[in-house]
Simulated scan of single mutants.
Amino acid sequence: MSAITVEGVSKVFAGASGQSMLALSDVTLDIADGEFVVLLGPSGCGKTTLLRIIGELESPTTGRVLRDHGGQTAGAEKPLGFVFQEATLMPWRSTAANVALPLEMAGVGRRERMARVREMLTLVGLAEAEEKYPHQLSGGMRQRVSIARALAHDPKILLMDEPFGALDAQTRDTMNVELQRIWLETRKTVVFVTHSVSEAVFLADRIVMLGTKPGHIHSITEVTLPRPRTVDMTESAEFRHLAAELRRQIGEVQDTEARPALSA
């Protein structure tokens, strides 16, 4: 069953010089319920734009996004969960209070709210940090709080825009392992944007490679590595071969012609 269907989505942005830029062109994509899909590609290929359209933070110029294949448009049923590159935690709120925020906004009662917060903090491995404030947490811990907050209201779909891009390599590896564990436990549908080939191969069920000028689907690659995946698997021949092929494709799409300009 499909969780997300992207049908013929294109996006045009108005340019400062009176011309318009075609950021995405005729993107069609089907994402299964519970699938972990990674959007990969060079800078400027429209990864974040596509994610924002899926998440209703941007509207497509043409095309549409559907959920659940029931004829319902994006936004129906349970809300989406978002995790961005910056944790965007409120510095004056404790860990528990930051995670509780979407539940407060939804009017969930205090007892139910705190039970859910503790459940989410246990899930992300921060049960002992509920009274700490963001400045007392490491970068990786702050992103775990962001993930807990995004999952607190039990969204069907989790959208993640380079959530570990600002972390050091060792912490990033740790967070990839942790995110995989959380996903295996919750089986949310995840759409994840990254510039990192290794991160994409480690996390994904499928990798959607976007080409540039304008953004379009260049290829879709299924990752058949067994789960749970470990950091040691990144040294395996299968992992290295797939990563090398994806890097070759990125080089291929970077050689495309310049992005065309459209009249306003």
Rank of each mutant, 00 (worst) to 15 (best):
P163D: 06
R149Y: 02
A115T: 14
M90K: 03
E130N: 09
R142W: 02
K156T: 13
E130D: 14
G109D: 15
K132Q: 15
A87G: 07
E128W: 01
D168P: 06
G139C: 06
G70E: 13
A127R: 11
G125D: 05
G63T: 10
A97F: 00
E58R: 07
I147P: 01
L80P: 02
Q136E: 15
G55P: 11
H153Y: 13
L158P: 04
I53S: 04
V117C: 09
F164W: 11
P91M: 12
D161R: 07
Y133F: 14
R67T: 15
R110F: 03
Q136M: 14
E58H: 11
A76W: 06
Q143T: 08
P155Y: 01
A127N: 08
H69N: 15
W92K: 13
I54G: 02
P79Q: 06
L103W: 00
G140N: 10
P134S: 10
M90Y: 14
D68S: 09
L101H: 01
K156E: 15
E58Y: 07
L103H: 02
L80Q: 10
R64V: 07
A129F: 12
V65Y: 01
Q72G: 09
E128F: 01
P79T: 11
H153R: 15
I157A: 04
Y133E: 07
M105F: 11
N98T: 10
G125Q: 08
P134Y: 05
T88P: 00
A152W: 00
I157Y: 00
G139F: 01
F164C: 09
R110I: 06
R113P: 06
V83I: 13
K78A: 14
G165Y: 05
F84N: 10
S138L: 06
A87C: 09
E128T: 12
L159N: 08
M105K: 13
D68K: 11
Q143A: 03
V124H: 02
I147A: 03
G125F: 01
I53D: 04
A148Y: 00
I53L: 07
